[in-house]
């Protein structure tokens, strides 16, 4: 395996919004010729040493990169796919040396686990599930949840991996009578799981018993909301949503994320804050990631915008490089870096402060 990477690039720079917040520290060039689709960061152990690695996905290739000195990266493992392209990386927290991927064309058709053989170190992959998969999320305690099937035979399934990534157990949650679009864990309640549905409901399950506890209808102003983060505090449920279908409004600008608060006992809920673009910026949410009190989104304008969820405003903007829009963005799970990627395989690592 050669070192495919990288010198610190001098572009793209952060614009004048708050230039101190984002500092480019590294660039990684994915050598695969196919279109780059996702990036993630995870811990990987080799020869007894656990390292914060980067994982990149192109349509037919997933690569694992280990850190070298001076912010360079070395490709150590590569998994190849021949029939169905990769749609997204699905990191599973608390599992070392295993990552899941979702494959499909427009919709997810397969979930696969990627790992290495303990015997000879060669790349391995196993099919976890195939079918009409609507949503998937890696959960704490080595669990993976997915929803599949059509409305009348929808299944919501939890797989639990053993510590070494093998021997998975299966459990089913009670399906709601509408298609689940996204999942989110609830900070502060380990056994709770949220889902958003096509009917603009938020559903909540008890992961231990599989019970569907409540269906809570949220504001119809935004359809098909995506749930990024949820936490329980003082008897209330706080949820960060994004609205890929939101229309830009002259008075409010473009709401990219929203914080709502729900009383799960009564299902009554109210919007607390809209996270909009700064004046003069246009674009709708394409895809994004929320970690702790930071939210990042790729916008239809090709830019990346970052919000401080506590301050309530946009703190940094990465404009598109000429002829090269941003296409995906993730917060690193192993440190406080932002990973921003472009379709041509360039991944930029930024320090955000």
């Amino acid at each position: 395996h050669s070192i495919e990477q990288t010198e610190i690039a001098d572009l793209p720079a952060c614009d004048s919004l708050n230039p101190g917040n984002l500092q480019l520290v590294s660039k990684l060039k994915n050598p695969s010729g196919s279109c780059s689709v996702d990036v993630s960061a995870m811990w990987w152990e080799r020869a007894g040493l656990k390292e914060p690695c980067i994982i990149t996905a192109c349509e037919y290739v997933v690569s694992l990169w280990k850190p070298l000195d001076t912010w360079q990266w070395k490709n150590i493992y590569t998994w190849h796919f021949t029939e169905v392209p990769v749609l997204q990386i699905v990191p599973v927290p608390d599992v070392c040396n295993l990552v899941c991927v979702a494959l499909g064309n427009l919709e997810i058709r397969e979930l696969r686990a990627l790992f290495c053989s303990p015997d000879d170190g060669s790349e391995k992959q196993v099919l976890l599930k195939s079918g009409n998969i609507k949503a998937v999320l890696g959960l704490t305690k080595r669990r993976l949840v997915n929803s599949s099937g059509t409305l009348c035979d929808q299944q919501v399934e939890i797989m639990t991996f053993a510590e070494d990534g093998g021997n998975k157990e299966k459990q089913f949650l009670m399906p709601p009578e509408e298609t689940v679009l996204t999942f989110a864990e609830v900070q502060g309640l380990q056994e709770a799981l949220l889902g958003t549905t096509v009917m603009n409901n938020i559903v909540i399950w008890n992961l231990k018993t599989g019970q569907l506890l409540k269906k809570m209808h949220i504001d119809d102003s935004y359809q098909a909301s995506v749930c990024h983060k949820a936490y329980s505090e003082m008897g209330l449920l706080f949820v960060i949503l994004s609205h890929p279908c939101a229309k830009e409004s002259e008075s409010l600008g473009s709401p990219v994320f929203q914080l709502i608060v729900i009383n799960p006992k009564t299902t009554l809920n109210v919007g607390v804050m809209l996270y909009c673009l700064p004046p003069g910026q246009a674009g709708r949410f394409l895809e994004g990631d929320v970690k702790d009190d930071r939210a990042a989104a790729v916008l239809t304008s090709g830019a990346v915008a970052i919000w401080d969820l506590l301050l309530g405003h946009c703190t940094a903007l990465l404009p598109p490089v000429p002829d090269q829009n941003w296409s995906f963005v993730k917060w690193s799970g192993t440190d406080s870096h932002l990973l921003a990627g472009q379709k041509d395989g360039n991944i930029f690592v930024y320090r955000y402060s």
Partner: peptide
């Protein structure tokens, strides 16, 4: 927002909903 708009709040909502929901 006003908490009163959300109705009576319970700190143990998760346990309470779990005991009320069908198994």
């Amino acid at each position: 927002c006003n908490k009163a708009d959300l109705g009576p709040i319970s700190l143990n909502w998760f346990e309470e909903l779990s005991s009320e929901a069908p198994p």
